[in-house]
Design a protein around this nucleic acid. Structure first.
Lengths: 141, 141
DNA sequence: CTAAGTGCAAAATGTTTGCATACTT
DNA sequence: AAGTATGCAAACATTTTGCACTTAG
């Protein structure tokens, strides 16, 4: 369990700027902390993995980046949320294929109704960011 | 990533029997692998943790037990599914409160429509057993 | 100058695995 | 006898942390 010292960056550091610029350049793509580390390493820029984890945490805190936990024994998945996406009323849902592991993004009004329904009928405020639908994709079923 | 050697137990071992009996005695309760290990240790019965993990995996495979991944850096959560629960035509959905950790069971026709919708419109066959809705329960929001 | 961030290496965590042994069928 | 399961300890993978050092404000 991580110590919740609610880190929200206050300084504009070089590393933070580099990371943010990179994330902004890959909207909708999802990546792991290790992916980011490798990416910069390949480009001759070394950013410590702790910095990556810490900045990622800040971004998630700030809502700039979403974090998905697909299954316990794989690394967490991150995804940059563009300001447009942020502004959109459309919510993005995720479906994970249990067989091939594919992660599918869905934007669907009908699914958004689930949210309203859960709130109205079950007093539960759904967090679509965290929720992943498991099942089988069309190729696998 | 775990090696998917689709283990499904074929032998009735003592450990498996002990574990199953225990799980059956705590329907609806959720526990971690470590909880199980500790429980038996306290009762003077030592079952290796690998056995616990392996049996848990089998039970999950067989649909006797559900596994929930709450967040990457906490242990996975398991829950025994009673035969009655299993036999119900109603599908049981789970909502997990991100704050207090409460796991809420829901039986709801409207939610079942999600399933039909995902299949018809998105070619995705939802597995309600594996899927957990994350959000905030009424007490926490 | 002070508070905050960085990077390294080490620790912590949760889970999986190799292997010799023991149990089921 | 053959095929599985067990339990230990070691290996693993991911993430977090302690600390000395650097950087931003």
């Amino acid at each position: 369990m991580k110590t919740n010292t609610s880190i929200r960056s206050k300084y504009k550091t070089k590393q933070r700027a580099i990371l943010l610029e990179y994330f902004e350049s890959v909207p909708g793509v999802h990546f792991t902390a290790a992916d980011v580390y490798e990416y910069f390493k390949l480009h001759g820029i070394t950013i410590g993995q702790s910095t990556i984890y810490r900045q990622l945490e800040s971004f998630v805190d700030e809502g700039i980046i979403n974090k998905y936990i697909i299954d316990g024994s794989s690394p967490a998945c991150f995804e940059y949320i563009s300001p447009e996406q942020h502004a959109e009323t459309e919510i993005c849902f995720h479906c994970k294929c249990e067989k091939c592991g594919r992660l599918i993004h869905l934007h669907c009004d009908e699914l958004e109704e689930i949210q309203a329904h859960l709130l109205a009928e079950h007093n539960f405020r759904l967090n679509p960011m965290r929720t992943v639908f498991y099942g089988l994709c069309e190729d696998c079923m």
